[in-house]
Design a protein around this nucleic acid. Structure first.
Length: 573
RNA sequence: CGGGGCGUAGCGCAGCCUGGUUAGCGCGCCUGCCUUGGGAGCAGGAGGCCGCAGGUUCGAAUCCUGCCGCCCCGACCA
């Protein structure tokens, strides 16, 4: 491609509404443009990067034995009603009526459609296993789109679904996908980690997320410093608390005035105790109904764990007014004793003795409170966020908390969907069985953003070779010089002959602009034809990632560099 | 949806508080000259429903009301 003919509108200045670096650079480098919140147009270079990720995904999926299909984006409501998700999925599902008044939606994911397809077409165990995938634009009406391609409402996703006759087959499919995902992200040149995850609205009972490690990530990961344990904060557990060796004797309950002391810090300071001796009472609304959650003073409630315990569709923290309406107590003085709403407790609380709680009365707390003697709870479970003080639940070593961007997620679905949609086949005994399913997603457009998030410097993007929109950029530094122009053109044609993606900067611009743009768009190899060619007949080669520069005679450039590119691309596999 | 912020030329911004020339600056864009190894220089030029609608006023980018859009923090997720 010739730069002079390319739609590549680079910006000198960073657009004001872009906050994270990948968003800023995608805009500045002329890869994307926003049309409305969370919805972007992909310009030629942005699309090229996306196509490269797609190519890698296709190769790895096909190698893993999956088959590509393309499912409809517009889906009828009745399929979603059949699975129960028409109600459960919530406002993120964009719903509308067609001209006949039939309820429809834009597909945010395709479990229903694929299960419907398979139940119609596959009736025997002989047709199994099956693994089908597609790469398609998805629409999810996100509450808050943000960070450019990181969280769009419209985005490109690879979603795949496996169908097996039994658990064993399904587990194998899951492992195959796990391995394939490793290869995909490795080939994309990313530093990533697979972590245990909550299954969310997709459902299912076991899942891993593939996380690109980056400080701007929206997720917190809990990673063991010693063993292989790694989990998303939503799912992560700590080593269970040990019961204290000596049981403290229960002391008599005491009511104490704590005027104006609402926050944990204020109360503990006032009472001269540590937060570890206090239990806070947090009120959440689970599908609109209030539930009190007890956690130790220095711990935080993990809402996803709470949601799973309660089997709720949605839980959110109650605000001060909702708390007062539900309990008649102002926040800061809530406690479990005499509380009229449901109460659940974190497992850590169950081991505490003689602790402090709110008095359910303004300006009062209770001391020497004991679970069992003074109050009961509906259930005890792990309901809190892991902290850096915690120890690995597997090996007991220290834990690291770090940030990540979710680029892939794989689930064991079991029979959730096949039972809901009654998708069955006959096994070798002639018995009807429900398919055992798995589902596997990769955020393709997000992967490009994540790659930039992880690979950039002050001058712009530094693309990993396999996903770079062009592998080589040739700068003609003197377009008015015939010899230099002829050399640049020759390089351009020779690279194209070698099947290398090459961009020729043939613009009538000064060298400085060309250097800046080449750095900004992140092309791995930059070739410069200018002064040193006129003087010594050599072409300079500069590596974007390292800044290393070398020079070769014109005739040697294409063979040497083409070979190097091939070597590096195969080494990445 | 709750909390915070912002809408003035393609991009980045000033002007608004305290209403009053022809709405301004840098970059970009067009023409010409000149220049060519890290976003040059000179000269000339184009480009604005000051987010939209209503109101106050002799007069509104500026004051008031309503609406729309966008960004950030939270719940959601590839």
């Amino acid at each position: 491609m010739r730069y002079s003919q390319l739609l590549l509108p680079t910006l000198k200045e960073t657009p004001a509404d872009a906050e994270v670096v990948s968003h800023q650079l995608l805009l500045r480098a002329g890869f994307i443009r926003k049309i409305t919140s969370g919805v972007y147009s992909y310009l030629p270079l942005g699309l090229a990067a996306i196509r490269n990720v797609e190519r890698i995904v296709r190769e790895e999926m096909n190698n893993a034995g999956a088959q590509e299909v393309l499912l409809p984006m517009v889906q009828p409501a009745d399929l979603w009603q059949e699975s129960g998700r028409w109600e459960k999925y919530g406002p993120e599902l964009l719903r509308f009526k067609d001209r006949h008044g039939r309820e429809s939606c834009l597909g945010p994911t395709h479990e229903e459609v694929i299960t419907d397809l398979i139940r119609r077409e596959v009736h025997s165990y002989r047709g199994l296993p099956l693994n089908l995938y597609q790469i398609q634009t998805k629409f999810r009406d996100e509450i808050r789109p943000r960070f450019g391609l990181m969280r769009g409402r419209e985005f490109i996703m690879k979603d795949g679904y496996s169908f097996d006759a039994d658990e064993e087959g399904a587990n194998k499919a899951y492992e195959t996908m796990h391995y394939a995902y490793h290869r995909v992200f490795q080939r994309c040149g990313l530093k990533f980690r697979a972590v245990e995850a909550d299954t969310g609205s997709i459902g299912g009972n076991f899942s891993h997320e593939f996380m690109v490690l980056a400080d701007t990530g929206e997720d917190t990961l809990v990673i063991c410093k010693k063993c292989t344990y790694a989990a998303n904060m939503e799912k992560a557990t700590a080593m269970p608390p040990a019961a204290p060796a000596t049981q403290a004797a229960p002391l008599p309950l005491e009511k104490k005035e704590t005027p104006g002391k609402r926050k944990v810090e204020a109360v503990t300071e006032f009472l001269g105790i540590t937060p570890k001796e206090l239990v806070k009472t947090m009120v959440y609304l689970a599908d609109g109904k209030p539930v009190a959650v007890l956690v130790r003073g220095d711990h935080e409630v993990q809402p996803v764990k709470l949601k799973n315990l309660l089997g709720a569709i949605e839980v959110e923290m109650a605000d001060d007014k909702q708390v007062f309406d539900a309990t008649g107590v102002p926040t800061g003085y809530l406690g479990p004793i005499g509380l009229k709403i449901r109460v659940v407790a974190d497992r850590e609380v169950a081991l505490m003795k003689n602790f402090v709680v709110g008095g359910n009365e303004k300006n009062f707390h209770l001391l020497n409170v004991n679970l069992g003697r003074d109050f009961e709870v509906e259930s005890v479970a792990d309901l809190r966020m892991v902290t850096e003080e915690d120890r690995c639940p597997v090996c007991g070593a220290e834990l690291n908390l770090t940030r990540g961007i979710e680029v892939g997620h794989i689930f064991k679905l079991g029979k959730n969907y096949s039972e809901a949609l009654n998708a069955v086949f006959l096994d070798n005994q002639g018995q009807e069985q429900h398919f055992v399913m798995g589902c596997y997603g990769i955020g393709v457009s997000r992967t490009v953003a994540a790659a930039i998030e992880q690979n950039h410097d002050k001058d712009g993007i530094i693309f990993p070779l396999p996903i770079a929109p062009f592998q080589v950029i040739i700068l003609n530094l003197s377009p008015n010089d015939e010899a230099i122009t002829a050399a640049a053109e020759q390089l351009y044609n020779d690279f194209r002959g070698q099947g290398i993606d090459v961009l020729l900067d043939d613009r009538d611009e000064r060298p400085g602009s060309k250097f800046k743009d080449a750095d900004l768009i992140g092309i791995p190899f930059r070739l410069m034809v200018g002064k040193s060619f006129a003087k010594d007949g050599v072409v300079e080669i500069r590596r974007r990632a390292t800044g290393e520069t070398s020079a070769l005679p014109l005739a040697e450039v294409v063979p040497a560099l083409a070979a190097q590119i091939r070597t590096e691309l195969t080494a990445a596999v």
